Amino acid sequence: MGMSVTITAAVAADAEQILKLQYLCYQSEAALYDDYGIEPLTQTLEELRAELVRGPGLVARLGSEVVGSVRGSVDASGTARIAKLIVHPRMQGHGLGARLLAGIEQRLSEDDAAERYQLFTGHRSESNLQLYRKLGYAPVGTERVSTRLSIVTLEKNRDGSPARTSSATAAL
Protein backbone atom coordinates (compact mmCIF):
# COMPACT_ATOMS: atom_id res chain seq x y z
CA MET A 1 0.00 0.00 0.00
CA GLY A 2 1.53 3.33 -1.08
CA MET A 3 1.68 6.48 0.97
CA SER A 4 0.17 9.72 -0.17
CA VAL A 5 1.88 13.07 -0.03
CA THR A 6 0.37 15.56 2.42
CA ILE A 7 0.90 19.31 2.38
CA THR A 8 0.94 21.18 5.68
CA ALA A 9 2.25 24.40 7.17
CA ALA A 10 5.99 24.40 7.73
CA VAL A 11 7.07 24.69 11.35
CA ALA A 12 10.43 25.45 12.94
CA ALA A 13 11.08 21.75 13.46
CA ASP A 14 10.98 21.26 9.65
CA ALA A 15 13.80 23.74 8.99
CA GLU A 16 16.65 21.24 8.95
CA GLN A 17 14.89 18.86 6.54
CA ILE A 18 13.88 21.80 4.31
CA LEU A 19 17.46 23.08 4.20
CA LYS A 20 18.84 19.65 3.26
CA LEU A 21 16.21 19.26 0.53
CA GLN A 22 16.88 22.80 -0.69
CA TYR A 23 20.58 22.00 -0.98
CA LEU A 24 19.81 18.86 -3.00
CA CYS A 25 17.28 20.54 -5.28
CA TYR A 26 19.37 23.59 -6.13
CA GLN A 27 22.38 21.54 -7.28
CA SER A 28 20.90 21.32 -10.79
CA GLU A 29 20.30 25.08 -10.89
CA ALA A 30 23.86 25.74 -9.75
CA ALA A 31 25.19 23.41 -12.45
CA LEU A 32 23.01 25.06 -15.10
CA TYR A 33 24.55 28.45 -14.36
CA ASP A 34 27.97 27.19 -13.20
CA ASP A 35 27.48 29.07 -9.93
CA TYR A 36 27.53 27.14 -6.67
CA GLY A 37 27.39 30.32 -4.61
CA ILE A 38 23.68 30.92 -5.22
CA GLU A 39 21.71 31.94 -2.14
CA PRO A 40 19.71 28.70 -1.74
CA LEU A 41 23.01 26.82 -1.45
CA THR A 42 24.58 29.25 1.01
CA GLN A 43 21.56 29.95 3.20
CA THR A 44 22.11 29.02 6.84
CA LEU A 45 19.72 27.17 9.08
CA GLU A 46 19.22 30.32 11.15
CA GLU A 47 18.36 32.33 8.01
CA LEU A 48 15.84 29.72 6.94
CA ARG A 49 14.24 29.68 10.38
CA ALA A 50 13.94 33.48 10.24
CA GLU A 51 12.25 33.20 6.82
CA LEU A 52 9.68 30.82 8.28
CA VAL A 53 8.91 33.38 11.00
CA ARG A 54 8.56 36.29 8.51
CA GLY A 55 6.10 34.54 6.23
CA PRO A 56 4.28 31.27 5.76
CA GLY A 57 5.86 28.17 4.36
CA LEU A 58 4.47 24.83 3.32
CA VAL A 59 6.01 21.38 3.28
CA ALA A 60 5.02 18.28 1.36
CA ARG A 61 5.54 15.08 3.32
CA LEU A 62 5.75 11.49 2.27
CA GLY A 63 5.38 9.82 5.62
CA SER A 64 7.76 11.76 7.87
CA GLU A 65 10.10 12.82 5.04
CA VAL A 66 9.89 16.38 3.67
CA VAL A 67 9.82 15.95 -0.13
CA GLY A 68 8.81 19.48 -1.12
CA SER A 69 8.58 23.00 0.20
CA VAL A 70 7.73 26.59 -0.70
CA ARG A 71 7.82 29.89 1.17
CA GLY A 72 6.26 33.30 0.70
CA SER A 73 5.38 36.67 2.13
CA VAL A 74 3.09 39.58 1.28
CA ASP A 75 4.43 43.13 1.13
CA ALA A 76 2.58 46.37 1.90
CA SER A 77 1.55 46.81 -1.77
CA GLY A 78 -0.29 43.48 -1.77
CA THR A 79 2.34 41.61 -3.77
CA ALA A 80 2.83 38.05 -2.58
CA ARG A 81 6.42 37.04 -3.19
CA ILE A 82 6.80 33.29 -3.55
CA ALA A 83 10.22 31.73 -3.17
CA LYS A 84 12.16 28.50 -3.09
CA LEU A 85 9.62 26.11 -4.55
CA ILE A 86 11.42 22.77 -4.31
CA VAL A 87 10.45 19.17 -4.95
CA HIS A 88 12.70 16.18 -4.34
CA PRO A 89 14.07 14.99 -7.71
CA ARG A 90 12.46 11.56 -7.35
CA MET A 91 9.04 13.21 -6.81
CA GLN A 92 9.19 15.65 -9.73
CA GLY A 93 6.80 15.34 -12.65
CA HIS A 94 3.79 14.28 -10.58
CA GLY A 95 2.14 17.65 -9.95
CA LEU A 96 3.58 18.22 -6.49
CA GLY A 97 5.15 21.56 -7.44
CA ALA A 98 1.80 22.78 -8.77
CA ARG A 99 0.07 21.63 -5.57
CA LEU A 100 2.61 23.46 -3.40
CA LEU A 101 2.31 26.62 -5.49
CA ALA A 102 -1.50 26.55 -5.32
CA GLY A 103 -1.29 25.98 -1.57
CA ILE A 104 1.02 28.92 -0.90
CA GLU A 105 -1.07 31.18 -3.15
CA GLN A 106 -4.14 30.28 -1.10
CA ARG A 107 -2.30 30.82 2.16
CA LEU A 108 -0.92 34.20 1.05
CA SER A 109 -4.35 35.40 -0.08
CA GLU A 110 -5.99 34.74 3.29
CA ASP A 111 -7.49 37.90 4.75
CA ASP A 112 -7.36 39.42 1.24
CA ALA A 113 -3.68 40.24 1.80
CA ALA A 114 -2.38 39.29 -1.66
CA GLU A 115 -3.59 41.05 -4.79
CA ARG A 116 -0.99 39.50 -7.07
CA TYR A 117 1.58 36.71 -6.91
CA GLN A 118 5.19 37.14 -7.99
CA LEU A 119 8.06 34.69 -8.30
CA PHE A 120 11.33 34.47 -10.18
CA THR A 121 13.68 31.98 -11.77
CA GLY A 122 16.77 31.94 -13.93
CA HIS A 123 16.44 32.50 -17.68
CA ARG A 124 17.79 29.01 -18.52
CA SER A 125 15.50 27.20 -16.05
CA GLU A 126 13.12 26.10 -18.77
CA SER A 127 11.21 23.53 -16.69
CA ASN A 128 10.50 26.19 -14.05
CA LEU A 129 9.45 28.73 -16.67
CA GLN A 130 7.20 26.13 -18.33
CA LEU A 131 5.51 25.24 -15.01
CA TYR A 132 4.93 28.87 -14.06
CA ARG A 133 3.45 29.72 -17.48
CA LYS A 134 1.19 26.67 -17.32
CA LEU A 135 -0.10 27.93 -13.95
CA GLY A 136 -0.94 31.39 -15.31
CA TYR A 137 2.22 33.35 -14.56
CA ALA A 138 3.54 35.77 -17.18
CA PRO A 139 7.01 37.34 -17.40
CA VAL A 140 7.02 40.97 -16.26
CA GLY A 141 10.74 41.71 -16.09
CA THR A 142 14.25 40.43 -16.58
CA GLU A 143 17.35 41.51 -14.67
CA ARG A 144 20.84 40.56 -15.76
CA VAL A 145 22.71 39.48 -12.63
CA SER A 146 25.94 38.27 -14.25
CA THR A 147 27.30 37.20 -17.60
CA ARG A 148 25.81 33.75 -16.96
CA LEU A 149 22.51 34.61 -15.26
CA SER A 150 19.46 36.73 -15.86
CA ILE A 151 16.56 36.57 -13.41
CA VAL A 152 13.08 36.40 -14.94
CA THR A 153 10.28 37.78 -12.74
CA LEU A 154 6.81 36.36 -13.38
CA GLU A 155 3.43 37.46 -12.01
CA LYS A 156 -0.23 36.68 -12.08
CA ASN A 157 -3.16 38.46 -10.49
CA ARG A 158 -5.06 36.99 -7.58
CA ASP A 159 -8.07 36.31 -9.80
CA GLY A 160 -5.82 34.13 -11.98
CA SER A 161 -5.61 36.58 -14.86
CA PRO A 162 -2.13 37.08 -16.26
CA ALA A 163 -0.13 40.10 -15.27
CA ARG A 164 0.59 42.71 -17.90
CA THR A 165 3.72 41.82 -19.82
CA SER A 166 6.17 44.21 -21.33
CA SER A 167 7.30 43.73 -24.92
CA ALA A 168 10.82 43.00 -23.66
CA THR A 169 9.70 40.00 -21.62
CA ALA A 170 6.75 38.71 -23.64
CA ALA A 171 9.05 36.60 -25.83
CA LEU A 172 10.61 34.69 -22.92
Rank of each mutant, 00 (worst) to 15 (best):
G2W: 11
V5Q: 01
T8L: 11
T8E: 13
T8V: 11
A9C: 09
A12R: 15
D14F: 06
Q17I: 06
I18K: 05
I18V: 15
I18F: 06
K20R: 15
L21V: 04
Q22I: 05
L24P: 03
L24T: 10
Y26V: 08
S28C: 08
E29A: 12
E29G: 03
A30Q: 08
A31N: 09
L32P: 00
L32K: 07
Y33D: 01
D34W: 06
D35T: 04
Y36L: 05
G37W: 01
G37E: 03
I38P: 03
E39F: 13
E39A: 15
P40S: 02
L41Y: 02
L41I: 04
L41T: 07
T42D: 01
T42P: 00
Q43F: 06
Q43S: 12
T44G: 03
T44A: 09
L45I: 11
E46W: 06
E47Q: 15
E47F: 09
R49P: 00
A50T: 10
A50R: 15
E51M: 15
V53Y: 03
V53S: 05
V53N: 07
R54K: 15
P56E: 03
P56H: 02
L58M: 08
R61M: 01
L62E: 12
G63D: 13
S64A: 11
S64D: 12
E65Q: 11
G68F: 03
G68P: 08
S69M: 11
V70C: 02
V70D: 03
R71S: 01
D75H: 10
A76P: 07
G78S: 09
G78R: 12
T79D: 05
I82P: 05
I82E: 00
A83Y: 11
L85K: 11
I86Y: 02
V87S: 12
H88F: 04
P89V: 13
M91D: 00
M91A: 05
G93Y: 00
G93C: 01
G93M: 10
G93E: 08
G97T: 03
G97V: 00
A98E: 09
A98Y: 01
L101D: 02
L101A: 02
G103F: 02
E105G: 00
R107Q: 09
D111M: 10
D111S: 14
D112A: 15
A113F: 02
A113C: 07
A114K: 09
A114N: 07
R116L: 07
L119F: 05
L119R: 06
T121D: 04
T121Y: 07
G122L: 05
G122M: 09
E126C: 03
L129N: 00
Q130R: 14
L131I: 03
Y132Q: 05
Y132T: 08
Y132G: 04
K134T: 07
G136S: 08
G136P: 07
G141F: 10
R144F: 01
L149F: 06
S150F: 10
L154D: 04
E155A: 14
K156C: 01
K156P: 02
R158W: 12
G160V: 09
S161F: 14
S161V: 08
S161T: 15
R164Q: 10
T165I: 09
S167Y: 01
T169A: 15
A171N: 14
L172W: 14
